[in-house]
Simulated scan of single mutants.
Amino acid sequence: MTQSTDTFDETFPYAPRFTDAPGFRMHYVDEGPSDGQVVLCLHGEPTWGYLFRNLIAALGETYRVVAPDHMGFGKSDTPQDRSYWLQDHIDNLERFVLALDLRGITLVMHDFGGPVGMGLASRHPDRIRRVITTNGPTPFGQPTLIDRVTENARISPWFQWIQKAESDGRLDAVLGELGFNILSTLKLNGFQDHALISDTWLRAYGSRFARPADCAGAIGWARGFAIDAHRFEVPDAAAMRAIRSRPALAIWGMADRTLHAEHFLPLFSELFPQAPIHRLAGVGHYSLEDAPKTIAAQITPFLQQT
C-alpha cells in the first residue's frame, strides 16, 4: 500500500487529500486556485494520479487541477467487498464530483479514465466544459463501440494476455504480483522513453501493489474486459447533444500497443467531428510519461482559446 505522505523523492510534491464520499477512502490531488477553472484528470490501468504529475505542475498556477485515484489504485483504499467494474468506477467518480461540487469541468482522460469520464459526462453533461483525451477512449454509446473494442483486442498484447490468463485461471496469480512485475506490465502496454526508469519511478507505480489483496483494482479492471462485465454508459439524447457541443481535443501517442489509434480515434471523431487531433509519433500508450511537455504545450492553448 502506497503511503499517503510519500512524495516519491519530491517527484509528486502534492498535498494528499481524502474523501469518503464514494463509500471508501478516496485520495485526490487538488492544486491551483480554488476559483480557477476545473481540470479533472482521470487515470487508468495500472496507474494513478502520479501519471499527471507534470501536467499538474504545468497547469496548476492558472487552473484548479483535480486528480483522484480510482478505487484500488494509487493512494485510495482497496475495499475487498466491492466489485471493480466500469459502472462502479463511474458511480464513485459521480459521488466524488458531487461531494466537491465540481462544475465547469475540463475532462483529461487516459486509458480507462476515458470511459469513466464519459460516464460522468453522460450523467452530468451540465458540469462538463471541455473534453480532452490523451490515449483515453471516449465511448459514448456509439453503435460501433463493441466492434471497435473487439477488433482492438485482437491486436493488443495486453488484451490477448488478460483474456488467456483469465481463461487459464491465472489472472489473479499473475496480476496479484503486480508490485513485482510492474515494469513488464507497463512495457506490455507501451511506453517508449526508457530514461524514465529509475528506482523512484518504479516505486511510484509498484508500491501500490505490495500484496495480492492490494491488487483487486488492477485485477478487477482486467477481468471485467475478459468476462465482458464492464457496461459503458449510454447517454440520453439531451446528454448526447450537450456533450457533442463541447470543445474537444484528442492527443494520441501513435506507438500505443494497447489502445490503437485506428480503432479509438474514429470513436472520438464520431462525437466531435470538428475537433483537432494531435497524433504523436514515437509516443506510446503512457503518453503523459513519454511526452509530458508536448502534451502540456497542446493542452494549454486549447484551454485558453476555448
Rank of each mutant, 00 (worst) to 15 (best):
R211G: 00
D236C: 02
Y84S: 11
M26L: 15
A213C: 02
A297V: 01
K164F: 05
P276G: 00
D172V: 06
D6H: 14
T300L: 15
Q163L: 01
D88I: 01
T200G: 07
R53Q: 10
M26N: 02
P143K: 07
W221I: 13
G32S: 08
H194L: 13
A250E: 08
D6G: 01
G206N: 05
A58P: 02
T150L: 05
T2I: 11
V131W: 04
T200M: 07
P16N: 11
A204T: 05
A226G: 10
I56T: 06
P79H: 13
P33I: 06
D228A: 04
P157H: 03
G169Y: 12
L175N: 09
D69P: 02
F140A: 03
H110A: 11
T62R: 08
P13S: 14
A226F: 08
H124P: 12
Q163H: 06
D69S: 12
H285G: 02
R211W: 03
Y63H: 03
I277K: 08
Q37W: 02
D147S: 09
F232Q: 09
V97T: 04
A218H: 05
G136C: 06
P143H: 06
P157R: 00
P266C: 11
G44N: 10
T19V: 11
A296C: 01
D168W: 07
R203Y: 00
E177M: 07
M118Y: 06
K293I: 04
L40A: 04
T200C: 06
G179L: 14
H230P: 03
P16Y: 08
H70G: 01
R82F: 10
G32E: 04
F159I: 02
A226W: 10
S122R: 04
Y205S: 10
D81H: 13
L202M: 06
V97R: 01
E94Q: 03
E10I: 00
H285S: 07
G217F: 12
D30M: 02
H285V: 10
K187L: 13
R244S: 15
G220W: 03
F209D: 14
R241W: 01
G113F: 10
G282C: 13
L280Y: 08
A213F: 00
G179H: 10
P266R: 04
T144Q: 14
Q298H: 12
D236E: 11
I197Q: 14
G136K: 07
D199T: 14
R53T: 09
F264H: 14
W201F: 15
R17M: 08
L86C: 00
W252V: 15
A291T: 11
E270S: 00
L42V: 12
R241P: 00
A99H: 15
